[in-house]
Design a protein around this nucleic acid. Sequence first.
DNA 1: AATGAATGAGGTTTCATTCAT
DNA 2: TATGAATGAAACCTCATTCAT
Lengths: 196, 196, 196, 196
Amino acid sequence: MSRVPVRRRLSPADRREELLDAAEAVIRRLGDTARVEDIVREAGAGRGTFYVYFETWEALLHALRERVFAQLDQRFSAWANSARDWRDLVSGLPELFVDMTLGMEGLHQALLHGPVGQAPPRRTRHDVIHRLADLITQGVTAGAFAVVDPKMTAVLVFAVLHETADQVERGASRKATLAAAQDLLIRALEATNRAG
Amino acid sequence: MSRVPVRRRLSPADRREELLDAAEAVIRRLGDTARVEDIVREAGAGRGTFYVYFETWEALLHALRERVFAQLDQRFSAWANSARDWRDLVSGLPELFVDMTLGMEGLHQALLHGPVGQAPPRRTRHDVIHRLADLITQGVTAGAFAVVDPKMTAVLVFAVLHETADQVERGASRKATLAAAQDLLIRALEATNRAG
Amino acid sequence: MSRVPVRRRLSPADRREELLDAAEAVIRRLGDTARVEDIVREAGAGRGTFYVYFETWEALLHALRERVFAQLDQRFSAWANSARDWRDLVSGLPELFVDMTLGMEGLHQALLHGPVGQAPPRRTRHDVIHRLADLITQGVTAGAFAVVDPKMTAVLVFAVLHETADQVERGASRKATLAAAQDLLIRALEATNRAG
Amino acid sequence: MSRVPVRRRLSPADRREELLDAAEAVIRRLGDTARVEDIVREAGAGRGTFYVYFETWEALLHALRERVFAQLDQRFSAWANSARDWRDLVSGLPELFVDMTLGMEGLHQALLHGPVGQAPPRRTRHDVIHRLADLITQGVTAGAFAVVDPKMTAVLVFAVLHETADQVERGASRKATLAAAQDLLIRALEATNRAG
DNA sequence: AATGAATGAGGTTTCATTCAT
DNA sequence: TATGAATGAAACCTCATTCAT
């Protein structure tokens, strides 16, 4: 009798991507308060459809993180390859992180600083730190950096970069924050450190 | 037959303290999933009693943070006064932070990395950073440190210390983590950096 | 062993009607003390289902009022059209109101005399008063009624009818109450008043 | 050790009166949302003191009603005695009720239209209606009124007066409302009715 | 595959009333 | 008599998840 509106049939992969797009947009907008309902509304899908593609809410968050970090990683990688020398590399790092973080906007908070009970985003974060570690190791090998423990140092450098981005995102002076971060990193990493 | 619960009358200050003690213990144990119910059970109080002393759940968290950070601040202050020289100070910082964080155990997560929507613990965190900034400024004045922007540097140093503590808490080698942090901080701060 | 509750799927309109039916029955029975829990139990629905159809408890009351008053209005309307002459109309009014009120039983109290803070059922009550005003105005035009202010008089006549019904509901003699009301209304409204 | 502030010792009757004063003021201000806490704060008394003088919250409401209505009754009585003739009496009734109601302000609602489950203010209301009945009976005896059932008529007249006051309280034109009420009552009651 | 009606455990908060002091 | 700390039953509402269609 009544006309049932026919839902576009998409390939599972496409539908999943649609949901992730919607999730990204919604979480950017609502942050922590985003709900399954909001996402399916944004995607123009039914509530149940969500659970066809994602086991649980956590699974969605995980998937979204994977996707976002894959993009970031790619960007990071491209940038690293374009650096002219080590100094250029180190002094450019803070700016890159700030830009990447600002590009993530709301996602940053919801994806990285999520509720405690939930598993922390180990894997994804590690990717970036891993790259940093590689970079530092290469710098050490090249004699540009003087660092005792490249791996652990990478972790701490990541913390500095992360905080730098946080500061700018929260309204601190971009210029001053970047300058301080560059100064600190150059001095901390370079073999012959004459920052500035 | 049935146990009549004894109604203990305490001075408001004492009962409040009891509730905070209970909250601290419970949050340590359950983290994010701690509930009002859990806390009053731990305190041996009625559910309504909780709301006599704390307007809302958030208010409790706030009060607990204040208390915990007051303790930390005291400890930090005492430690800073006992340092012999600047090198001693800088190289001791990571260890202090690790110990303080481990002492907080579960609280650390629930109190600092709480859900996003909620107000971040600005004030309290700022206290510690403020002290770091003072320290660095004094070091610069004394000619021991070479830092362009003490305030902002303090923020970044805090991030390093925080991450250091996080690492150890999550199971990283205490020795290696501390070494890396010390190395990084000494190089980053000291005017004549000859780390190690 | 344990009974698995059957999940009945209804069209939203039907389920909503079911909930309103249940609400009506329960409020009749329990009056002011009716709770969401009671209603969903009566309807054989889950607690959450209630909030799918009604934003808040107040919203349910509103919806129920609308439904009840729509029924009453219809009945009132039908009756007014069936009256033979003005005297017939006026003398029949009290009885109609008594019957309608008795038909509402408990609803009457809970829906009309609800707690003070809550919005009074303006709209709905106005509908009935509006009809009364029309009736009186027509009577005046026809020369049957002598009334200076039909609108305001309608309000007062409604008060009389309402009280009449209240009296009977509370156990006063139906016959005596009706007689007094008829007498009062006839004398108050008719141009040539020879009550009785 | 610590100084316990000595509470003024009052005679029980005075203390009770104080609480009633406070209750009246608070209920005027807050209406339905008035709480025990508000009243004892207003009275400058302890929470427990309330229950020394009033068994329950309902008991307070009852006592307050008694007191308020006693005042009203006195006023009504004085006014009735000052009327020159029957016409004067009838036409003055609405104004008296409006003034009395406005004088009660918030009390009116909270005391008369209280929650349904609670006992309606039978006794007190009856006092006023009883006086009205007496008045009407006397008017009938004097040949001024033509009414079949003075008692029941008094009930309905009360309803009219009550509604009149309600209307004015809710913002209806005082003049127009009073005129309509006077017109209706004169016509409804007087033997030779030539209203206006 | 897709849907959206249905669910209920679980959460915070209120407040009349009790009772140890 | 007076107090106010303590109580806990109950109320409303949310939302991830399920499942009949």
